[in-house]
């Protein structure tokens, strides 16, 4: 961990928010519960889309129609998971920054974001107006499989943080 991050972590630890998260007996588990609700909705709704793109489920549905239904759930839940995640981080920033599973989780989240951005810019236009049916290009299937693998790994790293901090 670099000195800048150490200094930042120490600054965060002095904030009232960080002290409240660290000292209250019920605040951390409550925020953690909301984090789990958010992240399970994120992963569940992304899986619905990815499985469609892989041709493994919802095959009769046009992919873009499914995006319109599932992605608002993904983004709403992601907002909840991100806010609660920041609050959990604020409780003990120094410990998290020194935890390999936390760092891996953040890196994997960044990769999942890049994968999603690349999909929307490059591959999604191919799907515009595509009817139902299993056919999707290799690129689309690779992006969807990568997304599923990354989100699975994010959940696994998240759970491992709790055993290593």
């Amino acid at each position: 961990m670099s000195d800048t991050f150490t200094a930042l972590a120490l600054k965060i630890e002095e904030t009232p928010l960080s002290l409240a998260m660290a000292e209250s007996a019920w605040l951390f588990p409550t925020v953690e519960s909301l984090h789990v609700i958010g992240l399970t909705l994120v992963v569940g709704s992304i899986a619905i889309v990815d499985l469609r793109l892989l041709g493994l489920a919802s095959r009769s549905r046009a992919p873009q129609e499914l995006f319109r239904a599932a992605l608002p759930v993904t983004w709403g839940a992601f907002l909840v998971a991100a806010i609660t995640g920041l609050l959990l981080f604020a409780a003990k920033p120094t410990s998290y920054l020194g935890n390999p599973f936390f760092l891996a989780k953040i890196a994997l989240l960044a990769l999942a974001g890049l994968n999603m951005a690349a999909f929307h810019r490059v591959l999604e236009p191919q799907l515009a107006g595509a009817p139902g049916g299993p056919a999707a290009s290799v690129g689309v299937r690779v992006a969807a499989g990568t997304s599923l693998a990354l989100w699975t790994a994010i959940v696994v790293c998240g759970r491992w943080i709790g055993f290593s901090i």
């Binding site: 609700i37 992240l39 399970t40 909705l41 569940g44 696994v156």
Partner: peptide, 22 residues
């Protein structure tokens, strides 16, 4: 084993929550 089982447990919760939400 226990963290791995808990990870599978949470992934299954994600399936329940995603399906129930839809």
């Amino acid at each position: 084993i226990i963290p791995a089982l808990q990870s599978v447990h949470i992934l299954a919760v994600a399936v329940v929550m995603g399906s129930a939400a839809m």
